[in-house]
């Protein structure tokens, strides 16, 4: 799979295999993510989406194959036809270009909000404390939590913790941002504000994003490519436009129907309800409409 224009892709999976014991989760997976792409992985639970992100973040070791970041091997390289593991130091260097936001936030409870954000910039990137604090304050402002810098993570709501986690990841200036179901642990009414912030990030930066989400409206708004997974394989891929208006594979249609169809009319949010003469379905769908995201992101609904 060659990247467009022959440019070096931000992420390349080449014949990646991942086994957990006897369970083969990924078997010879190939795909690339071009620089600046926003790629959303969708698919049923257990199809290997989280595993893919964890492999990129080096939280799991791949059992075979190669992952390249900006054309450089991440964990293993082919040397004289042999697959050799690279030094931990090499992994650490490449890893600095990658950031991740987790479903469970994973803020450090032994640090305040601002300490969480400046920790890695100061101790990993060697930024001065003053600069790191200034930058952290800017990011807290961006995620609408400027007044919470001295709070402890556990004093914050889930939505606020996730916003801090986003700020913490962005403070490292990642080239690649991995988002694994970042709103799944949140109350439905909070989901919109977190997604709104991520949409802003997508619009205001050129960070490459690899996203796993069940929020189809968000996937549609933010990504330029969607990959549908099932059983560790890519079933279908395309632009959100192609994907949501005219899915080619039956497997994809079934999946979309199951996750996003209106529970009453059976209509997909971007399709007219069957029988409803030409009127688009109301946005009252299980996914949070993007309009809500933008109005509530600073916690101040006008």
């Amino acid at each position: 799979m060659a990247a467009p224009n022959g440019a070096v892709p931000a992420i390349e999976f080449r014949d990646v295999q991942k086994r957990f014991g006897d369970t083969v989760v990924l078997d010879g997976l190939n795909f690339t993510v071009a620089k600046g792409d926003r790629v959303t992985l969708i698919g049923p639970s257990g199809s290997g989406k989280t595993t893919i992100l964890r492999l990129v973040m080096t939280l799991e070791d791949l059992t075979d194959g190669y992952i390249f970041i900006d054309g450089e091997p991440l964990t293993h390289a082919e040397v004289d036809g042999e697959r050799v593991e690279l030094k931990p130091k090499h992994k650490t260097e490449i890893r600095k270009r990658i950031g991740m936001v987790f479903q469970q936030f994973n803020l450090f409870p032994n640090m305040t909000v601002i300490e969480n954000i400046i920790e890695a910039p100061v101790h990993v990137l060697g930024m001065s404390k003053e600069d790191a604090i200034e930058k952290a304050r800017g990011l807290l402002d961006q995620v609408g939590l400027a007044d919470k810098e001295d709070a402890h993570p556990l004093e914050l709501s889930g939505g606020q913790q996730q916003r801090v986690a986003i700020a913490r990841a962005l403070a490292m200036d990642p080239e690649i941002l991995l988002l694994d179901e970042v709103t799944s642990a949140l109350d439905p009414e909070i989901v919109g504000e977190v997604l709104g912030i991520l949409k802003d990030v997508a619009e205001s930066t050129d960070i490459t994003m690899l996203i796993v989400t069940h929020e189809m409206q968000f996937a549609r708004d933010v990504s330029n490519r969607i990959l549908m997974f099932d059983g560790g394989r890519i079933v279908e891929e395309g632009t959100p436009e192609e994907f949501f208006t005219n899915p080619k594979e039956q497997r994809t249609r079934d999946f979309l129907q199951a996750v996003v169809a209106d529970p009453i009319t059976g209509a997909l949010p971007w399709q007219p309800a069957p029988g409803a003469s030409g009127t688009p379905a109301a946005p009252a769908t299980p996914t949070t409409p993007s309009t809500t995201s933008t109005t509530t992101q600073d916690g101040d609904p006008l």
Binding site: M57, L59, I98, N106, N110, E119, A120, V124, R168
Partner: peptide
């Protein structure tokens, strides 16, 4: 999740232990 967050922030194993894991 705490260990994984330190990896995602590229902390070394010494930093991870001293600054995040041991205090907890």
């Amino acid at each position: 999740g705490q260990w994984e967050a330190t990896t995602a922030l590229s902390m070394t194993s010494a930093q991870r232990m001293r600054r995040v894991i041991f205090p907890q």
